[in-house]
């Protein structure tokens, strides 16, 4: 291979894990004990889930150290999915 790859250290993986666990407890805590936030909880839960997903993809799945094309592709795929979702929900909201 023309370029050497990056080896992620054990400590970095462990740090990633700690942050993911913290986020998990945060989302559970908000949901179980902050129940009066109503619809906001859905948004917060999804927001935290997305942060977690990003952390997993960036550090565990190595996206951070991969060539840029991988980040571009996943960005396109995810934004397409989000547009699908918006166009679909739009139909239901405007009926």
């Amino acid at each position: 291979m023309e370029d050497s790859y990056h080896i992620t250290g054990y400590a970095e993986h462990f740090g990633t894990w700690v942050s993911l666990i913290l986020l998990t407890f945060m989302t559970v805590f908000i949901s179980v004990f902050g129940a009066d936030l109503n619809t906001l909880t859905v948004a917060t839960a999804l927001f935290i889930a997305s942060v977690k997903a990003l952390v997993v993809a960036y550090y565990f799945m190595h996206l951070k150290y991969d060539p840029k094309i991988y980040r571009i592709m996943i960005l396109i795929v995810m934004s397409m999915f989000v547009i699908f979702l918006i166009m679909l929900i739009f139909d239901y909201l405007t009926r």
Partner: peptide, 21 residues
């Protein structure tokens, strides 16, 4: 092409604004 699927459903009961978009 990904974002035009609704044109198969104009008469299905989809919402008006969706249909024209």
């Amino acid at each position: 092409g990904y974002f035009v699927w609704g044109h198969h459903m104009f008469t299905s009961g989809m919402s008006g604004p969706s249909a024209w978009i």
